[in-house]
């Protein structure tokens, strides 16, 4: 049991190392990963300014831009990465190793976290400075709690989708691409999700990021009316449920897909 744990911890660090080293060796990534997403946030902020929208909307956009970084890290640097690993032939080497598949995924996410944190911080700092956003945090403790819970739920969702990437590869890749923009829209990255209407908001909150973002907005702009979805307490409760649910489902799905792949012969590339 103990050796099992150390082996898995070593595996996490081993896989994370690639990302950490990669970020250092190819600093040009920083530009693509930090500068480009900044532009997206800024253009929304400028549009809101131009439309004469309430000033807190600009603040929302900046905070959302920072959170997008974490979401993208999990979806693209972890879940979709399984597709590339399969194409390159790494996936089968991960699968024959005596470790949990979750350790590999965790390694990817942890390795990407370094870059993501830089990116989120820069977006937050530059956005705040350029647009003169002011924050009024009601509770740092709650804010941290909401952030951690959101990450937990999103990570579960990421693992769930990586099980799809593991088996379906290219098809899953296209689907994820297809859903990228609708997800940004539905989670209310760039506006309070209530704007989607009651029903729309309910549906969108199935994506844990929606709830997390809404709660973060409430906590971080506590002075201004924000048109919340639910109370922070309710949202946190829902996030706990989502975290447990998604992680449990992901575990099952990973096991199920691996087994299906071992039966059908789709786990590995045929020609090898």
């Amino acid at each position: 049991m103990r050796t099992n744990l150390t082996t898995n911890l070593r595996a996490i660090w081993g896989r994370a190392y690639v990302r950490v080293v990669g970020a250092n060796r190819e600093p040009s990534w920083l530009f693509f990963e930090v500068a480009l997403p900044l532009l997206a946030s800024f253009s929304f902020a400028l549009i809101y300014r131009g439309m004469g929208a309430p000033e807190q909307y600009v603040g929302f956009v900046v905070v959302s831009g920072a959170m997008i970084a974490f979401w993208q890290n999990i979806l693209w640097s972890m879940a979709a990465q399984f597709y590339w690993e399969k194409e390159m032939g790494n996936l089968e080497l991960y699968l024959i190793a005596p470790i949990s598949r979750m350790s590999i995924l965790m390694g990817m996410a942890v390795g990407g976290l370094f870059m993501t944190a830089i990116r989120a911080t820069l977006i937050l700092l530059i956005g705040t400075w350029v647009f003169g956003v002011t924050y009024q945090v009601s509770s740092w403790l709650l804010l941290t709690g909401v952030f951690v819970l959101t990450m937990g739920a999103v990570y579960g969702l990421g693992m769930l989708s990586s099980s799809l990437f593991m088996l379906f590869g290219r098809e899953a890749w296209h689907t994820a691409n297809l859903f990228q923009e609708p997800v940004y829209f539905a989670t209310g990255f760039y506006f309070p999700v209530r704007a989607l209407g009651d029903l729309g908001a309910m549906l969108a909150s199935a994506i844990p990021l929606t709830l997390g973002l809404d709660a973060i907005r409430q906590l971080i702009f506590s002075g201004t009316p924000v048109n919340p979805l639910f109370t922070v307490k309710t949202e946190m409760l829902l996030l706990v449920v989502a975290t447990i649910l998604f992680n449990w489902a992901a575990l099952r799905a990973l096991r199920f897909m691996e087994n299906l792949g071992k039966q059908s012969g789709r786990l590995t590339l045929k020609g090898q």
């Binding site: 595996a11 081993g14 190819e26 032939g89 190793a97 005596p98 470790i99």
Partner: peptide
């Protein structure tokens, strides 16, 4: 396997071998 393309181009030979050794603890 022959003709395998595993690992990551950004790592060195030593790092690649080390990385895979970690999956076996």
């Amino acid at each position: 396997s022959g003709g395998e393309h595993s690992g990551y181009g950004i790592l060195t030979v030593r790092e690649t071998i080390w990385m895979f050794s970690q999956f076996y603890g």
